[in-house]
Simulated assay, not measured.
Amino acid sequence: MNESVAIKQIIEDLLSGDSEIQKTAAKACYNMKDPSLIPYLKGACKSDNTGVRYFAKKSLFHILESLRKTDDHDLEKIKSLTEKKIYDMILNGDSDELLLAIRAIKQERKVNNQILDALCNVLKKEENEYVISNIISVFSMFSYKKVYPLLIDKLRYKDLRVVANTIEALQYYKSSKTIFILTQFLKHKDNRIKANALSVLMKFSVEGIQKQLVKMLHNGKLWEMDSALYAMIQIDPVVFESEFEWVLTNESDEAIIQKAIDGLQKCKTETAR
C-alpha cells in the first residue's frame, strides 16, 4: 500500500465513528508528517472516547512539531524579534502574527508587563480556541496577577485543551478559592485535565495528592499513565524516582517507557545540582 492510499484509509478510519478503529488510526498517524491529517486529528481530539483523544492529541502534536522544526525562516524571524515588535504584533497583527509572537515569548523569553497586559486584552475577546490555548500557555510560564480572573473564567470553556492549559497556569495563584476550584477537576474524564489539577494541587502542598497521582499511574490506562508521568516530571522528578523505575520494570509501551526514562534523566540532573 503506497503512502497516499494509506493516508486515505487512515482518514476514512478517523471518520468511521467506531472508537476502536479511530484509536488505531490516530495512533498510526504518529509516524506520519502529512499536514493533510491535521484537520482530521483535530476532529478526533474532540471524541467522547478518552483513548481516541489521547492518541489523536499525541499524533497531532508530533506532526505539528515536525513541521515547525523544518520552518527555518520562522526560527530566524523569531530570534530577530524585539520586545517592541512582539508587542506590536500582539496589538495589531493577525492570528498568524499573534501566534508567532507567542512562540517568540516562549522560546526566547522575550516578555515584559506591557506584553503580558496586551495578551490579557486579546484573551478577553479572542474566540479561536487554538489561539486562546496558546495565549494561556504563556501564562503557565509567567506569573501575572491581572490574568487570574480571566483564567477562572476559561475553566468553563468548552475546549478541553483550553481548560488543561488554564489549570496549569493557575500554579502561581495559591489560595483557598483556587484549591477549591481545582479539586472539582480531580474526577474529570479527561486525563490531561485531571493530571494538571493533581500537579498544581501537589505544588500547593494539598494533602493526599501524591497518592492520587501514583494511583493514576498504576491504573493501566496508557493515556492516564502518560499524563501522570508528565505531571510527576513537572512537579519534582526526584520524589517520583521509584515510580519511573516501576514503569521500566512493568510496562512495555515504548512511549510510556521513554517518558519514564526522561523522568530518571531529570532526576540525575536535579541531584547533580
Rank of each mutant, 00 (worst) to 15 (best):
M1D: 13
S4E: 13
E12S: 09
E12T: 05
E12Y: 07
L15Y: 02
S16N: 11
S19T: 08
S19M: 02
E20F: 05
I21C: 02
Q22M: 09
Q22K: 06
K23S: 08
A25Q: 01
K27H: 03
A28W: 02
Y30T: 04
N31C: 04
K33D: 12
L37W: 00
L37C: 03
P39G: 00
P39E: 05
Y40F: 14
L41Y: 00
K42W: 04
K42L: 10
A44I: 02
K46G: 02
D48W: 07
N49D: 15
T50S: 11
G51T: 04
V52E: 00
Y54N: 00
Y54E: 01
L60V: 06
L60K: 05
I63P: 00
I63F: 06
R68Q: 08
K69V: 06
K69G: 11
D71P: 03
L75R: 14
K77A: 12
K79N: 13
E83G: 09
K85H: 14
K85L: 14
I90A: 07
S95C: 08
L98A: 12
L99K: 15
L99P: 03
L100M: 11
L100V: 10
A101G: 10
A101N: 10
I102M: 10
K106I: 14
Q107G: 12
E108A: 09
A118M: 15
L119A: 11
L119Q: 10
L119D: 05
C120N: 14
C120R: 10
K125S: 14
E129L: 12
Y130V: 12
V131I: 15
N134G: 03
I136W: 02
I136F: 05
S137Y: 08
V138C: 08
F139P: 01
S143D: 14
Y144I: 13
Y144A: 04
K146D: 15
Y148K: 15
L150S: 07
L151C: 09
I152P: 00
L155I: 11
K158C: 07
D159G: 08
R161D: 15
V162I: 08
V163H: 07
A169I: 02
L170R: 01
K174H: 11
K177T: 13
T178I: 09
Q184R: 15
K187N: 15
K194N: 06
K194V: 02
A195W: 01
A195Q: 06
N196S: 06
L198D: 00
K203S: 08
K203E: 15
E207S: 08
I209N: 06
I209W: 05
V214G: 04
M216C: 04
E224F: 10
S227Q: 04
S227E: 03
A228Q: 01
L229M: 08
L229K: 01
L229R: 05
Y230T: 09
Y230R: 10
I233P: 01
D236F: 07
D236G: 02
P237N: 04
V238A: 02
F240T: 00
W246E: 03
V247I: 09
L248C: 01
E251K: 10
E251I: 05
E251Q: 11
S252G: 04
D253I: 01
Q258N: 13
K268Q: 09
K268I: 09
T269L: 12
E270T: 14
A272Y: 09
R273Q: 12
